[in-house]
Design a protein around this nucleic acid. Structure first.
Lengths: 107, 107
DNA sequence: TTGACATAGAACCAAAAGGTTTCATATAAA
DNA sequence: TTTATATGAAACCTTTTGGTTCTATGTCAA
């Protein structure tokens, strides 16, 4: 059993509605900070802080490009949270969970 | 922009490791507050606060039984978070997402 | 080189979160 | 009825969170 809680930074990142909105936004494609900040009614440094927390959760990766820093969604990190939640699949839809297992076994 | 964020109370509830541990614990069966609090190194009122937040997220239901209050997991509420996350399934495993869709359509 | 642009980062602040202790209340058991 | 138990709830405290403004730095463009 895993003693420590590696999913904490991910769940923490997902807890804020602004950060979830940023994830949605970045699912359409990578963007520099200023462009992201334009979509919200808060200052750029505030958005930058949210991006830092998303980065700590591994949810985004940053690549410098000239004087910009391009933020790209790393959806694989979402799987950490999905795995934890899906652990309880059986409780809300046992049949689907079993079929999904079959699908996974066949792959 | 989405008008309102109905998933916020769920994600908020999931953000704390103690609350996730409580969810795990209750997946084994309903328990009264004192029994839950025994498992953590914090006071009963602290645990009671966590239970209140889980209740706000719809993740647990409480039924009074004598002088006890039995906390029962309501895993259906987890689906709210799962749905949001699985919306990004395509990014980490497009094939599985499609098969899962087929399964859901057949039900 | 000079000026504009994109971002980093520090200092600061108010509110929320997560904990505590203390006290009140309802039910069960003696 | 009296006492013990299970919980609710208030008051309080400290740390974290989410925001701000101001300043510094590196890069592009004239």
């Amino acid at each position: 059993m895993h003693a420590r809680d590696h999913s904490q930074p991910v769940f923490r990142a997902l807890a804020d509605p602004t950060r979830r909105a940023i994830i949605s936004m970045l699912s359409a494609g990578p963007r520099p900070i200023a462009e992201i900040a334009d979509e919200f009614e808060m200052t750029r440094p505030a958005v930058a802080k949210h991006l830092a927390i998303l980065r700590e959760g591994g949810l985004i990766a940053v690549e410098p490009k000239g004087r910009e820093r391009i933020n790209r969604l790393n959806p694989a990190a979402l799987k950490t949270a999905a795995d934890w939640i899906n652990h309880f699949d059986q409780f809300w839809d046992d049949r689907l969970a079993k079929l999904k297992q079959v699908v996974e076994d066949k792959s």
